[in-house]
Simulated scan of single mutants.
Amino acid sequence: MKKLIYILSVCAIVALIVVVLILNKKSTAEKTRMVMEASTEVAVKMIAVTDTAYSMGFTSNGVLQALRDLQFMSDVSGRVIGVYADEGSRVGKGKVLVQLDNEMLRADVVSSEAAYNGLKKDYERFKNANVQGGVSDQQLDNIRTQMIAAESRLITSKKHLADASIKSPITGSIYRRYVEVGSYVNLGAKLFDIIDDSQLKAMCFATEKQRLNLTVGQSVTVKSETFPDKIFQGEITFISDKADRSLNFPIEVTLTGDKQDLKSGMFVTVLFNIGAMKNGILIPRNAIVGSVQAANVFVVKNGTAKKQKVVAGDMVGEQIEILQGLQPADSVIVAGLINVTDGVKVKNIQ
């Protein structure tokens, strides 16, 4: 009897242990399943899309250019006997910059002038004699032809003499000199680089959509990193009718008012259409998957990421305009995209 009780007790204990092990196994399996499900969810950051009002203004970078930047070439040849301007000199239009040796040219002018004056007197005598019948019409025409040719040579000689005093064609500043006293300059030789910075302009670029809102004469704001606390004013003076290879249209902006210490070659940022407003959807640029021309985003529905094709518009600061493909209240992934694929489970982190 005692032996039977002992056997039953052992069996009960074993059965209890088996039940406990089975329950523990189920609990462990459930926990493992939950951990596995949690581990398959990709951590991302999402935002809710909203329809907001934003400025249609945009910025474009450019480099300031002078009104005129001239490479001044010589249109005569000769020995340099004087240079009257140096790098940094401010010169006016017509100021003599270089003097070439003109001794032979002056002698040629004197000779040409004497020949012309002599023929002119002969022509007057022949003319009077022709009236009295002492000189034929043919003789008069011959002397007149000689006089005209002599006058032409005199004019040419005077022009060559004047050209020996090389003058500045514009008002501006010399920023590079290539000629020295004693050197010989040939026709077409570079003499100076002259810049007229009385006006400054910047060549910027706009997309085809941005160009639609621009007109010649429109006021713009110009900023420079060199003078971060100053704002300069300008206006659009040229809008190209043809896009470049990157499908952007060149826009010329000329500074108006006081340009202060701005110089040609400085980097500037031009702000267009600052006051115009528009309603639409904006998302961060880093939410775009692929290029702007073939843009996609990941929209989250019921915890699952779905790849959605969108039509992107213009950049607005660090954000990009979405023209088609998103609706207000859509949840869009903006961070953590490196591990996201179409159909993957995701969870939002703040």
Rank of each mutant, 00 (worst) to 15 (best):
L97I: 08
V98M: 10
S157P: 03
S111E: 05
L161F: 12
V110F: 14
K95S: 15
I155G: 01
D101L: 14
K159Q: 13
Q146C: 03
S168Q: 11
L161T: 08
Y123V: 09
A164F: 11
S136C: 02
V98R: 06
A115L: 07
Q99I: 09
G94Q: 04
R125F: 13
Q139N: 08
D163S: 12
L100W: 08
L154G: 03
G133V: 05
A107L: 15
T171E: 11
V109K: 04
Q146G: 05
Q99Y: 07
Y116S: 09
A114N: 13
K159V: 14
M147D: 01
S136F: 00
R144Y: 08
D163Y: 11
S168H: 14
A150Y: 00
Q132G: 07
R125P: 00
K158H: 08
L154I: 05
D141W: 00
V135Q: 01
Y116P: 05
I170W: 12
Q146S: 12
D122V: 05
K120H: 12
Y123E: 04
L97N: 04
L100I: 12
K167C: 15
T156N: 06
Q99M: 10
N102E: 10
G118P: 00
K167L: 15
K121V: 15
D101C: 11
S112Q: 06
G133T: 03
P169M: 13
V109E: 00
L105P: 06
A164P: 12
S111M: 07
A164N: 10
L105H: 07
A149E: 05
M147Y: 05
F126V: 04
G133L: 03
A162E: 09
V131H: 04
E113L: 04
D137E: 08
E113F: 02
S112P: 12
L105F: 02
L97H: 07
V135A: 03
L161E: 04
L154M: 13
A115F: 00
E113C: 02
A114M: 07
V98D: 02
G94Y: 12
L105V: 07
I155Q: 08
N102S: 15
A114G: 11
Y116L: 06
N142A: 11
E151A: 13
L161G: 03
A162G: 09
Q99L: 14
N102Q: 12
V135E: 01
A150M: 06
S157C: 07
V135T: 04
D108R: 09
Q146T: 02
R106C: 07
L140T: 02
L140R: 08
Q132C: 00
D141P: 01
Q132R: 09
A114V: 06
E113M: 07
S136Q: 00
G134P: 00
R125Y: 14
S168R: 11
A114Q: 12
E124Y: 13
T171A: 15
V109Y: 03
N130Y: 02
S112C: 10
Y123P: 00
D141L: 05
T156A: 15
K121L: 15
